[in-house]
């Protein structure tokens, strides 16, 4: 059952990352990887919110491990950072990786604090 829930969440999360990335690039251009930052921060916010709630293992498998896990990515982030650095952009590369980590941690904290407070 857990396997099916993880699979279902990932089957939605991975294509949603791709489609969000396309939509963000179509709007803001492709020089800086805003699309990946968007999915990583949104997924961290949602997973942080789930961590603050008394959820069961089924919700964790579907939305946490499956959906948020596949929506967000380290492989894409690291490759983008490498390519930004190679294009001569040491500063954009550093801003991309450190900014993603800072924004992701902040989003996880906000999500957790919000649901923790609301759930009392």
């Amino acid at each position: 059952m857990t396997v099916l829930l993880v699979a279902l969440g990932a089957a939605v999360g991975a294509p949603l990352r791709y489609l969000t990335d396309r939509a963000v690039q179509a709007r803001f251009g492709s020089a800086f990887p805003w699309g990946t930052l968007t999915v990583n921060v949104a997924g961290s916010l949602l997973l942080g919110a789930l961590a603050g709630l008394p959820t069961g293992p089924a919700v964790g498998a579907l939305l946490g491990t499956g959906f948020c896990g596949a929506l967000t990515t380290w492989s894409t982030l690291s490759y983008e950072t490498l390519q930004l650095a190679r294009a001569g952009g040491r500063l954009p590369a550093l801003v991309n990786v450190l900014g993603s980590v800072a924004a992701g941690l902040a989003a996880a904290t906000v999500g957790y604090t919000l649901t923790r407070t609301l759930a009392g």
Binding site: A14, S44, A51, C68, A70, T72, G104, A108, Y112
Partner: peptide, 13 residues
């Protein structure tokens, strides 16, 4: 495969 294998949200949380 690799996007689904790696995860940023679990890292942050």
């Amino acid at each position: 495969v690799l996007g689904g294998f790696t995860t940023f949200s679990t890292y942050a949380v």
